[in-house]
Design a protein around this nucleic acid. Structure first.
Length: 824
RNA sequence: GCCAGGAUGGCGGAAUCGGUAGACGCAGCAGACUUAAAAUCUGCCGUCCGAAAGGGCGUACGGGUUCAAGUCCCGUUCUUGGCACCA
């Protein structure tokens, strides 16, 4: 492909004398873009659709540097795609429900809605200063009644399908936030939001049946997610294949779950969780005082306290279970190392082959019975010093003796036990159902009405949304204002018309982010969550955000999409075709930015000082985007100075010593850079794009001082460089574009084509090694034969002196890469 | 403890398939311009020996494979993230 001369003048005829001043151009272009609707997405427009989405922010009131980091790179990439002819949807909204609004309401005596919508208005202004191509016409807040009415609609639909249910049970309770929490929101036994240790309470709560989808959520074949995220989700779901084994006890049959049915004969005692329902019935009169004391003490402890205890604790119930194979009696204990929430809440303890059971047996002097022995090993002593958890052969197990233990035999042994009716193959998950209700105000009201006659009755669809009351009062005890608001709470039953009560709980705010990517397709559609006619925009092609959402938000939204698919709302199996995570910008001290550490960098200040284009460039350059790294106050000088040099390249007279450069040199620099920039945008390798563009501008500064500056190659270079700047630094690129006499916006201009011929060089400089050490370099045609290459290499004086008097053992020639002459 | 990732100059980082390690940038040093400073421009900038030319060493550490290793293999140390009594 050859370079076509342009008809319009590409150089600036009357150079501007002033220096690069971002403040003189950025606001001007932002206003012009907004006014012309440059970034308004039109699904009718030409080009293949591309849906690029960045995780939407919570409207805290201030965009911090992390928001910039999360948005600038996807914005640059979306701009690049757009210039390449894609019809790119790049929207933004606000994840507006949540506790901070209530806390602000209590602290500053302001209505949560007022606080939220003020913050949103301010943050949109801040976003605009960033110079993004976000289509603000699609913006919404999840606290808009027209949004959350669909949360309510979904909830009722889920309920109709048996996926939403209310159940009594032990739940996580955060005493500070005064609400229950989902398992996913408890981190190391503490509230994910405020860090307060979580208490356990027995409450009746709404749940969503995410466990129905556990197996499907383990299947990532329809989505491209980073290995790390897949692993975290897989571990979270925690699938364990094993068996349930039935033991007779004085209180009836007790079934335990085990992943090691091959060690069944090694079970020397049974352990129940303190909350297990059979504990009371199994406790003998002798043991009652001790057991009751233990159980109530365990109940008072938080999970954190339980885990912090180094030593195992427990107490004997006084009862014995009958081993289903040996028929021997084994003692039944109660201990808090067994969790009531996992499996059946009881275990068969095999101390010989399990660390935890071993520790327990040792502390309480319980017998240890070896049933797995490594090949050619001596029998385990009666009082072993440690359990054996490795592979081996089954021993002391009657008919099973001699079989290989472990994974190999589990299926066989389970089948045999099943035949005898003592066991059953069983798969257990760590994943729990999603505890969905919250005892808070600023969220989606659960659309149910509780009637003494009819029970829980859904609010009829034509009465949705159930709106939050606008006037609210918060009391100091932190109780939900909905509970205290009789006017709102008391209503009539839709079924019998009698006096009834609204559900005063609101939904977990993770509901909002579970399906918002569908709402962007038709943000004001009022007949369904989204307009089915817009389904062609799905799925999200690239979703980006922080790794901190690897489990919570991503798992919930995957679940939601699968339910939507089963409801017939979408044909997608997954919400996101591709997911990528950016790293985090840290403070200069390498620590997470926080007000208390005093290491916060404020993007508004940076924009005031350097301009948005400089901040954008620096954030892209600072580190590989998926990694992130510490801020460096001096580092931002780099891009600031660079854009000054770019400006001078277009406007200033050449300065400095004259250079020898050919048109081919310049065209090679331009087209090979273009090629690299394309590849790196594809890979999301933004930092190397900046490097490549800076390298090119260095070359162009030199080219300007050579005769090339009078040629068409130079015109082309300035043109392509201008276009390549556009996705990264949209303001200065637009200014240069117009100064160069081009019409329209650069952001709708077509991305340049790579001239493949120009992007490669036939003559390259390659290193010459003698016995693996680089001794010189030669300039040689890529097409040179081995003989030609060797001849040139040997002729090089730096190389020749190492060859003198030596015998050549081997010659290696990799065209365009290396020559290696091995001598002895 | 288990699982996954990482370790390259003073600093952030670059290096398609194993093929001239340190691109690009920051900081630093020297010089030009300036009465001076800032800004800008030019040059130097891994380390050791050397006046230089040049050479030795060098990608956490110890081995190995290969004509050739930052890159592949084995082991070790440190480090980041996730999970953490999940039977």
């Amino acid at each position: 492909m050859t370079h076509e001369p342009h008809s319009t003048p590409l150089t600036i005829e009357e150079p501007r004398s002033e220096r690069y001043n971002p403040h003189a151009i950025e606001e001007k272009w932002q206003q012009a873009w907004a006014k012309s609707g440059l970034y308004t997405f039109d699904e009718q427009a030409a080009g293949e659709k591309y849906y690029a989405l960045t995780m939407f922010p919570y409207p805290s009131g201030n965009l911090h540097i992390g928001h910039w980091y999360a948005n600038v790179a996807p914005d640059a990439r979306a701009r690049w795609l757009r210039m390449r002819g894609y019809n790119v949807l790049f929207p933004m909204a606000f994840d507006a429900f949540g506790l901070p609004a209530e806390n602000a309401a209590i602290k500053h005596n302001i209505n949560p809605a007022t606080w939220t919508y003020q913050n949103i208005a301010h943050m949109i202004e801040q976003f605009e200063r960033m110079g993004t191509m976000i289509d603000w016409s699609r913006q919404f807040a999840t606290s808009d009644p027209e949004y959350y009415r669909w949360n309510q609609w979904f909830f009722i639909e889920f309920w109709k399908r048996g996926l939403a249910y209310k159940k009594d049970g032990l739940v996580n309770w955060c005493p500070k936030d005064q609400t229950v929490l989902a398992n996913e929101q408890v981190v190391h036994g503490a509230c994910e939001r405020c860090g307060t240790p979580v208490e356990r309470r027995n409450l009746s709560q709404w749940y969503l049946k995410i466990t129905d989808y556990a197996d499907e959520l383990l299947d990532f074949s329809h989505t491209d997610m980073p290995e790390k995220v897949r692993l975290m989700q897989t571990n979270w779901i925690g699938k364990s294949v094993g068996a349930e084994v039935a033991f007779d006890t004085p209180a009836g049959v007790e079934t335990v779950f085990t992943t090691r049915p091959d060690t069944l004969l090694g079970a020397t005692f049974m352990v129940l969780a303190p909350e297990h329902p059979k504990v009371e019935a199994l406790t003998t009169a002798d043991q009652r005082t001790e057991v009751e004391a233990y159980v109530s003490a365990a109940g008072r402890k938080t999970d954190v306290e339980r885990q912090q205890e180094g030593e195992k604790t427990g107490v004997f119930t006084g009862s014995y279970a009958t081993h289903p194979v040996s028929g021997e009696p084994i003692p039944i204990w109660v201990a808090d190392y067994v969790l009531v929430t996992y499996g059946t809440g009881s275990i068969m303890a095999v101390p010989a082959h399990d660390e935890r059971d071993f520790a327990f047996a040792q502390k309480f002097g319980l017998p240890v019975r070896e049933v797995i022995r490594p090949k050619d090993a001596q029998p385990m002593p009666d009082v072993p010093s440690e359990p054996y958890t490795g592979e081996g052969f089954i021993v002391n197990s009657g008919e099973f003796d001699g079989m290989a233990g472990g994974k190999a035999s589990i299926a066989t042994i389970t089948a045999q036990l099943q035949q005898r009716g003592v066991a059953e193959a069983k798969t257990t998950y760590r994943l729990r159902d999603w505890l969905f209700a919250r005892q808070r105000y600023w969220g989606t009201p659960i659309p149910f009405i509780h009637c003494e006659q009819c029970g829980a009755v859904p609010v009829p669809e034509d009465q949705l949304p159930v709106k939050l009351p606008e006037t609210v009062e918060f009391n100091a005890a932190g109780q939900s204002p909905l509970k205290l608001n009789d006017e709102w709470r008391i209503t009539t039953c839709p079924q019998c018309g009698g006096v009834a009560e609204r559900d005063t709980d609101t939904m977990d705010t993770f509901v909002d982010s579970s399906w918002y990517m569908y709402r962007y397709l038709s943000p004001h559609y009022d007949k369904a969550p989204f307009d089915p006619e817009k389904a062609g925009l799905l799925p999200v092609d690239l979703y980006t955000g922080g790794i901190e959402h690897a489990i919570l938000h991503l798992l919930y939204s995957r679940f939601w999409t699968k339910v939507m698919r089963d409801m017939g709302l979408t044909t997608q199996h997954e919400p996101f075709a591709t997911l990528r995570n950016q790293g985090m910008v840290l403070g200069e001290d390498g620590e997470k930015m926080s007000k208390s550490r005093g290491n916060v960098v404020d993007p508004d200040d940076l924009v005031r000082e350097y301009g948005a284009d400089t901040v954008r460039t620096y954030l892209l350059q600072i580190a590989p985007w998926e990694l992130g790294g510490p801020w460096n106050t001096q580092g931002i000088n780099g891009p600031s100075k660079w854009l000054g040099r770019v400006w001078a390249l277009y406007f200033d007279a050449p300065f400095g010593p004259a250079q020898q450069m050919s048109e081919a040199d310049v065209r090679y620099a331009v087209h090979s850079t273009l090629q690299k920039v394309n590849q790196d945008f594809e890979k999301l390798s933004f930092n190397t794009i900046i490097g490549a563009l800076q390298e090119l501008s260095n070359t162009l500064v030199k080219a300007k001082r050579s005769h090339v500056a009078q040629t068409l190659a130079w015109e082309e270079a300035l043109h392509i460089f201008n276009l390549m700047l556009a996705p990264i630094v949209p303001h200065i690129a637009e200014e240069l574009w117009h100064e160069r006499g081009m019409s329209g916006s650069i952001h709708t201009a077509p991305w340049p084509m790579v001239d493949e011929q120009a992007a490669v060089r036939d003559t390259v400089t390659i290193g010459v090694q003698v016995s693996g050490k680089v001794r010189g370099e030669v300039s040689i045609s890529k097409a040179a034969t081995q003989e030609e290459a060797m001849q040139v290499a040997r002729a090089n004086p730096d190389v020749a002196k190492y060859l003198e008097g030596k015998q050549t053992v081997k010659e290696v020639y990799v065209p365009g890469r290396i020559i290696n002459i091995v001598v002895k």
